[in-house]
Design a protein around this nucleic acid. Structure first.
Length: 424
RNA sequence: GGAGAGAUGGCCGAGUGGUCGAAGGCACUCGCUUGCUAAGCGAGCGUACGGUGAAAAGCUGUACCGAGGGUUCAAAUCCCUCUCUCUCCGCCA
C-alpha cells in the first residue's frame, strides 16, 4: 500500500499539518483522526505479527515431529491459525481506516503561500503594458470567425457544447504555439514524451485528481480508464513504482490532448475556446530531489514567463491561495494574461510544486546517501496550450480584423506575419 | 476475436507443499592479492511495514517469487479470477 502522507511528519509535528489544513480551509481535526487511526493501525499490526510469529514457529515444528506425535501439535496450531486469521482481518480493517483518514489530508502547503480561498491569491508581479486600441477590439471568437480560425458551431454539431474546430490559420497558430513551447523545453534539456491520455485508476488517483476534481474527469466505465485532463497525469505515472536517480533532475515535456468535463461550470466562459472539453497542451514535468524543488519551481515559472515575452503578451503572476491549490500542490503560480475584451487577466499557465505528495502516492523514490529510499519531488507547468490563442488574437488584433503574428511564431507559420480575415 | 506458452531478486536462471527471502551465475560494493592488460581470493549486496533504540546505527518480527482471492497447521510450489508479455491464426484505421 502506498503511503498517502508522511506518517513520520504526522507523528512528529502534527501542528504543522494542522496549520496547513487550516490554511486550505480544511478541518484541522482530520489530523487528529489520522493520528488516532495510525495508533490503532500499529497496535493491530503488532498483535497480528506476534500471533503470526508464534504460528510460524509452531508450524515449522510439525515438519520435524515424528508422525505419531503430530496430532496434538496439529490441533494446537489449527486453533492458533484461526486467531491469526482474525487478527489479520483486524489489520486490514485498521489499514483501510488509516488510509481513509490520511486521504483527507492534502499536501502540506509551503510557508508563505497565502491562506484562504480562490480570491485570496497574492500578485507577484505585473509585466508589460495593457494593449491600447484606437478602435473597439473584437473578442477572440469574433476574430476567430473572421479569420476562419475557430468554428464553434460545427464543434457543437459534431460533439456538443464546449467542443470546437480549429481551422486554417487557427489550427496552424495552435500548432505554432505548441512548437514554440516544445522548443523552449527542449532548449532547456527536457526529454519529449507523447504520453497516453487514457490511464488506469491508480495513476489518476496517485496524481490527486480524483479528490476535489473528480467530477471534472472523464471516466470510461466499460474499460475502467480515465481520460487525462493534462499530460501531467501520465508524466507522473511514467516512473510510478520505480526507484530513480535524481542526482540530476529528470525533466520531461509531454505533448497531448487534454479532456475536461467542466462539470459545474455551466454558464461560465460559454463563449469561444476559453473553457472547452478538449484542447492541446505542452506540459513540463520534473522529478527532482525535494531539496531542489522550490528552486526548480522558480525555473519553471521563468521559462513560462519567457514564453509570454516571446508572444508579446501583457501578464501578471499570481501566487495561488492555499484553498485553491488542489490536493497535490504545495504551491502554485499562475500566469494570467490580459484579455482586452474581458477587461480581465485570464490564466494561461499554471505551475505546481507537488513536493513529495504525488511521488508518495505513486511510489516514486530515489536512493539517498545512506542507501535509504525516499520519495522524490514532482513539479509541473504549462509551456504551451490552446487557450493562449485567446490572448494572442485579442492582443495583436488590428482595426481591420487582421492579427499580427508575434516575431517568435513566424518561423512556425512558414513566415506568415499577419493573419488576414477570410471574409468581410 | 480464437489457440498456445510464459511471468521468480538489477539481469540470467534453479526450485512442484515444511529446514526457501529463495541455489547457481552475471553485474555491483568493500577488502585482500597479483608485474602482464585485468584476473584471482574473501565478504557483502532487495523492498515495505512493525517492535526496540537518540538514531536514517544495530538487533528483532511480519509480509512480499506478476496482481487478487482460495485450500492447508504450513504455499514460489495446489485451485480460481485477473493483468501483462511472447508465438500462431483471424480482423483492422
Amino acid at each position: 500500500m502506498a503511503a498517502v502522507i508522511d506518517v513520520q511528519l504526522l507523528r512528529d509535528d502534527p501542528d504543522l499539518v494542522r496549520r496547513s489544513q487550516d490554511a486550505r480551509g480544511n478541518d484541522p481535526a482530520t489530523v487528529d483522526a489520522a493520528l488516532e487511526a495510525d495508533r490503532v493501525r500499529r497496535e493491530s499490526i503488532r498483535a497480528y505479527e506476534t500471533l503470526r510469529a508464534e504460528q510460524n514457529a509452531r508450524s515449522k515444528e510439525i515438519g520435524r515431529t515424528p508422525k505419531e506425535e503430530r496430532q496434538a501439535l496439529l490441533d494446537e496450531v489449527k486453533e492458533l491459525s484461526e486467531r491469526v486469521k482474525a487478527a489479520q482481518a483486524a489489520v486490514a480493517e485498521a489499514e483501510a481506516a488509516f488510509t481513509a483518514a490520511a486521504e483527507s489530508i492534502e499536501n502540506l502547503v509551503i510557508e508563505g503561500v497565502p491562506a484562504g480561498g480562490e480570491e485570496n491569491f497574492t500578485v507577484v508581479k505585473h509585466v508589460g503594458e495593457k494593449p491600447v486600441f484606437d478602435f473597439e477590439p473584437r473578442d477572440h471568437l469574433k476574430l476567430g470567425e473572421l479569420l476562419g480560425a475557430i468554428d464553434m458551431a460545427r464543434g457543437a454539431k459534431v460533439s456538443g457544447a464546449r467542443f470546437d474546430y480549429l481551422r486554417g490559420v487557427g489550427a496552424r497558430l495552435e500548432l505554432a504555439v505548441m512548437q514554440l513551447g516544445l522548443q523552449k523545453a527542449l532548449d532547456n534539456g527536457f526529454v519529449m514524451l507523447t504520453p497516453p491520455t487514457l490511464v488506469k485508476p491508480e495513476i489518476m488517483h496517485g496524481t490527486g485528481f480524483l479528490g476535489e476534481h473528480a467530477d471534472e474527469v472523464y471516466h470510461l466505465e466499460r474499460q475502467n480508464l480515465y481520460l487525462t485532463g493534462t499530460s501531467e497525469v501520465a508524466l507522473a505515472g511514467y516512473h510510478a513504482d520505480e526507484i530513480i536517480d535524481v542526482t540530476e533532475p529528470l525533466r520531461y515535456v509531454g505533448w497531448s490532448t487534454c479532456y475536461r468535463s467542466e462539470a459545474g461550470s455551466a454558464g461560465k466562459d460559454t463563449r469561444g475556446i476559453i473553457r472547452v472539453h478538449q484542447f492541446n497542451k505542452v506540459e513540463m514535468f520534473v522529478y527532482i530531489d525535494p531539496a531542489e524543488a522550490e528552486a526548480e519551481h522558480e525555473r519553471l515559472l521563468q521559462w513560462q514567463e519567457e514564453m509570454m515575452a516571446a508572444l508579446e503578451l501583457h501578464y501578471r503572476v499570481i501566487d495561488t491561495a492555499a484553498g485553491d491549490l488542489g490536493s497535490s500542490a504545495a504551491r502554485k503560480y499562475d500566469i494570467e494574461a490580459w484579455v482586452p475584451t474581458q477587461d480581465a487577466y485570464r490564466e494561461l499557465t499554471s505551475t505546481s510544486n507537488c513536493t513529495t505528495y504525488q511521488a508518495r502516492r505513486l511510489n516514486i523514490r530515489a536512493r539517498g546517501d545512506e542507501g535509504r529510499t525516499a520519495p522524490v519531488a514532482t513539479l509541473n507547468g504549462t509551456i504551451a496550450t490552446t487557450r493562449w490563442l485567446v490572448a494572442l488574437l485579442e492582443t495583436h488584433q488590428r482595426a481591420d480584423g487582421s492579427v499580427v503574428v508575434p516575431e517568435a511564431l513566424r518561423p512556425h507559420l512558414g513566415g506568415l506575419d499577419v493573419l488576414e480575415p477570410v471574409q468581410p
